[in-house]
Structure formats: C-alpha cells, structure tokens
Computed example of a mutant assay.
Amino acid sequence: MMEYSYLGRTGLKVSKICLGTMNFGSYTSEEDAFAIMDRALEAGINFFDTANVYGGKGQRGQTEEIIGRWFAQGGGRREKVVLATKVYGGMENEADGPNQGSGLSAYKIRRHLEESLKRLQTDHVELYQMHHIERHAPWEEIWGVFESIVNQGKAYYIGSSNFAGYHLALAQAAAEKRQFLGLVSEQHKYNLLCRLPELEVLPAAGDLGIGIIPWSPLEGGMLSGKMLDPEPGSRSESRAAKLTDHERSQLEDYAKLCEELGESEPNVALAWLLANPAVTAPIIGPRTMEQLEQALRAVEINLSEDTMKELDRIFPGPGGRAPEAYAW
C-alpha cells in the first residue's frame, strides 16, 4: 500500500514514490505512457514529475504534451495528480536571439511557464521547479516573478533542482526578506553510489524545511541489478563493460546482500533512500509497466539497523555532514 509524506514543510501530501516521466516519448510510447500513468494512480502514486525539456533530441516538450493528452481524457486524472515541472533549459522551438538558451530571467520564466501549461493542458502546476541554479539573475528578480506566478494561481509551490547547500540558504534568506515561502523542495542526485549530498545539501535542506526529491536513485542503472550480467545489446551492456574492479566488487557485495534479504537490488536502493527522514520521495523513471510494478514494493521494505550498516560498508558515504566529515 502506498504511503504519503508532506512536501517539505508544506501541508501538501505526496506519495513516497514520485513518478518520473523523462522516458515518455523518447523510450516509452504514448500508449505505454498512458498505461503507466493510469497504473501509477491506481497504485496510489499521486506525485508526477516532468520538465519542459523532456522528450528527446529534437523533441523537447514532447513529454509534457503526452501528459497533457493523458489529462485530456478526463476521469479526474488531473485532479488526482500533484504535478511538477521544471524551467531553465532552452527549447528547440524558440526563435534565435540573445535571450534564448538556458537561464532563469523573469522574461524566460514567464514565457516558459505559459508554454508548459499549454502542452500540459492545465491552468496550473502544483510544483514549479528551477532545473538548475541561475548564476547571473539576482534573487530579487527570480523571487519577484515566482511570487507573481504563485499569486496568480499558475503554480502553488516553488522548488529547485541541482542546487548546492549554500544556494538553498541564499535562496531562502532572500525569500524571507520578502515574506515569501520560498523553496519547498530540492530535486537532487542522491543514491547509494552518490552520497556527497550528505555533506551540505541534506543538512541545509533539513534545517530549512526543504524536502529532498532524489533523482537517479539507481545511479543510471548501476543499482538496477543488471550491471553484473547485462542483456546483450542493452543500454546496461556498454556501461557494464566500463566497470572498475572496485565498482564490480561493490556490486557483487550488494547483490549478495539483496539476495540474503530476498529483495531486488533496485528496491533496496529505493528503501535505503526512503529510510532517510530528509527524503520526501525518490523519483522512479519506469520505461515499462514491469519496472513500475516492481518499484511499488519499495515502500513496504523496512531495512534493519544491521542492513543499513552493511550498506554503509559497501557504499561508504562522505563521513557525515560538513565540516565534521573532514575536520574536527
């Protein structure tokens, strides 16, 4: 049975698994995407994540369009979904000019939100996320446009993605000056093989009431259970060929542990994330219905203290939060 948690410090409840849609259109057909989204709702997943740039090379925006056509079928689909999309990257249909490409100017945010809403066939998104940090526009500009969007009801909450810990602190300090809620979530790369966020991002987010939404929870397939014996011709095969001796040893130990637990390797990786109170919901990106069905088991897995210690041994983290991880 699906479980739910609050999105950061807000009163909004989201499923503890977030449905990522990046594969829709590029690797998953529209028909299969529709079936996956219907099954996700049936299983209690109410949190869907996308981005304006998803859809594949030459097809940016295609994923939002697929979701929009799924919503258009009715049946309460839109009303049941907490929808998140993102802004930052350049879109292929933009006219050439100095203001095209990546960024978070007020000019860009307003235009791209309107385009996303058209593709998604909705008048609002619950969570509008900055896909990357903006290194030029001041927070006065950024928060000014996001405040306006929230006041207009076109977005209910604002989130970030790929922010460093100090970016979160700066953003929230600027928001507080305006008496604005600011960030409620940070979508960040975090998994058993990528634990650097434990130094600063997770502690900062926890102190600021920002929920962590981990992306790439399986490290691009490394923790999928397919790396040690990949299928010929699969995407895993080329990556498996590049494994170092250390990585292979880690994955062998991990496979043995998961076998002893009687759980799949991807589900143990998800359960490890869910055991962290800083985590709101890891993003799964199923290409097939089978992958979605398998991931649903993760919320039911409770890892023992001994298992967590063994995972720390196999995949050691940075040693805790900064600065104690590297200084007295």
Rank of each mutant, 00 (worst) to 15 (best):
G25L: 08
K154V: 03
G165C: 03
G319V: 11
V125I: 08
H124D: 02
E140C: 02
E30S: 15
G319D: 11
S161E: 04
G11H: 10
S161R: 05
L251P: 01
E260L: 09
H136Y: 14
Y54H: 03
E141K: 08
L296D: 00
T10P: 00
G101K: 10
G101V: 08
E114H: 13
R297D: 13
K80G: 06
M289W: 06
N267Q: 05
R77T: 03
Y4W: 04
E141Q: 10
E3G: 03
L120A: 04
G101T: 06
G225C: 01
F163I: 10
I213V: 15
A175V: 08
P323I: 12
G211F: 01
G103W: 09
P214M: 06
L270W: 07
P282W: 01
H246A: 15
Q250E: 14
R135T: 12
R178Y: 09
E126T: 15
W328V: 10
A169V: 15
Q250Y: 07
L113I: 07
Y326C: 09
P203Y: 07
T122M: 05
V82R: 11
I284A: 00
Q172K: 14
L12F: 07
A175E: 06
R77S: 02
A95H: 11
G68P: 06
E200F: 02
G97M: 08
E310F: 09
N276L: 11
G25V: 08
N46E: 04
G8M: 12
S264P: 01
P266K: 00
I301P: 00
V81H: 03
G90T: 08
N52C: 14
L311R: 02
Q179P: 00
M1K: 14
G25M: 12
V150M: 05
K118I: 12
L192Y: 00
H167Y: 09
L170R: 11
L296H: 00
P286R: 00
I213P: 01
I66W: 02
G211L: 05
V150I: 13
D253L: 13
E324C: 05
G58Q: 10
L223K: 01
L83C: 09
A40K: 01
A169C: 13
T244H: 08
L303T: 06
P316D: 04
Q152F: 06
L261Y: 04
G101P: 03
E134S: 15
Q179E: 14
P230C: 12
A271V: 02
H132Y: 12
M227F: 15
E30C: 09
A155Y: 04
T244A: 05
W215R: 06
L196V: 13
L113Y: 05
T63F: 04
N267E: 05
L261N: 07
E30Y: 07
G101H: 07
G153Y: 08
S26D: 15
A255C: 10
L274K: 06
A51D: 07
R119K: 14
P217A: 05
R69F: 07
K226P: 00
P203R: 03
